[in-house]
Design a protein around this nucleic acid. Sequence first.
DNA 1: CATCTGATG
DNA 2: CATCAGATG
Lengths: 312, 312
Amino acid sequence: AARELKLPESTVRQVISSDFELHHYKESSENGKEKDTKKVRTEDFSSDAETKDGKKWNLKIVSWNVDGLRAWLEKDGMSVFEHENPDIVCLQETKCAIAKLPNDIKDINGYKSYFMSAKLDGYSGVGLISKLEPLVVTYGIKDKAHDDEGRCITAEYEKFYLVTVYVPNAGRKLVTLDKRMDWDPKFLKYLKDLDAKKPIIVCGDLNVAHNEIDLANPKANKKNAGFTKEERDSFTDLLSAGFVDSFRHLYPDATAKYTFWTYMMNCRAKNIGWRLDYFVLSERLVPQLCDSLIRDTLTGSDHCPITLLMHM
Amino acid sequence: AARELKLPESTVRQVISSDFELHHYKESSENGKEKDTKKVRTEDFSSDAETKDGKKWNLKIVSWNVDGLRAWLEKDGMSVFEHENPDIVCLQETKCAIAKLPNDIKDINGYKSYFMSAKLDGYSGVGLISKLEPLVVTYGIKDKAHDDEGRCITAEYEKFYLVTVYVPNAGRKLVTLDKRMDWDPKFLKYLKDLDAKKPIIVCGDLNVAHNEIDLANPKANKKNAGFTKEERDSFTDLLSAGFVDSFRHLYPDATAKYTFWTYMMNCRAKNIGWRLDYFVLSERLVPQLCDSLIRDTLTGSDHCPITLLMHM
DNA sequence: CATCTGATG
DNA sequence: CATCAGATG
């Protein structure tokens, strides 16, 4: 039995449409009664964002490193579907073999879902959940050294490719920096090849904070995974190849905006975090960009979700 | 800093005495106000039990397989000290290396404590916590094959030996029944040698339900760890060597009295359990036995504590 | 259905 | 300070 989502009442939109004529979902923030007292309110996820030339968003993508899909389900991570009513949700670090995926996440009413797991059980893993059925879904980056690790799903839609990724972590004491440095150029080539065909949207945990503004303690972390020169330069290479960090593009000066906080030392409450999760777009999609948001009120993982609003 | 126990107010007894002239602790069950609404009430642990010839108990020993000391502490297992005000507490399956023992359990105001851990970290392990400092404390049963597993502590007091034990589990599919069958006669010899010097009190998880009356599903468990003929016969051998199962001695017909319930299938709520935890006494201590109790209202483990009241 | 460890982040 | 697996019970 497919999971029935309790979508907000005023939702009147096509669930599986044949193209991206998905209409802007207008939340009813004046329905007369406060639903409950918890601090996350669906109306706070409403947005009227539009492109520079005034076109309202009609595609919403959410990306979330869930740090263990099953634990995240227990913590009501699925409420993001009710709050966001997203067209597509991408998940990283599912840490769950395909055979162990709970029905709650496989069968969501109105969505198609796709998962890739690592050979090593309980490690890595990504998922892509979409109202509109993609034309083609592919798994991995076509590289033997990496494709056993369940790090990438590509969904082809009519007007773009969506790539969700969980980039290799360089590890404590940078023990896997070599693997990471092997990944980065291969992944970039993979993206360039796609981009030669259709514009692309890349989302997920890129496991790098690009610049000092992107983490709370840049000085202390120059030798740590996620902020080494090597990793930062790789990210610069990505942007130099014709791609755009959508959040930073829209908010070049926004400080203290993070998507990850270690569970240790109460870092989340103190907002000692890192911006590791991104929506990266082909440059030619920038005119269609409406907003790129960090949903740091949502919990359920050591990462928070991020949301992209596009006019497609 | 030693942990300060919130002992019941009327406790007026010597904390470290030089002998066993420990006075009977009289709980004040009429102190005028209900303390709280939780179902475990300290006054329910009061007892006026006495020996057959009318001598009130003056020594209380509690034994508890805690199934992981640290988890048990989180679940407020230490409240047994407030409820029972015991002279001695024996713990089994501490699953905690000596170096990792929390201070809460090492430094209890008014008690001395002794622990033995397995070489294999997180496995087995026993502890003994005593108001009166034992004359001698020894570890293991002086057998190379077993003494790396942290299964036995012996405390010598003036008038008796106290032996606390976590007997090897025969394992799923009886994979370690051989180890168990190696242990049982060696342990019995160890006990006999002690008993030749002073009477003994043995307590702990003996990992056997002696007779059909001692578990909920005897028929279904004849081939399962804890109720094989081999294990039951070993226990019979122990009793035949001059020792007494104190609970069964006092309550020969008591049914459905268990000390262990698997966490699975809601067995505790349904009282589908096993009596695996015992106070076994040298026969010559029986005249001093006041009571042998199963404290099945206390939670914090898949076993409940058991309590022995003696006049020493 | 719990505890633990050890790997991973 | 979390997730997971796997061993153990």
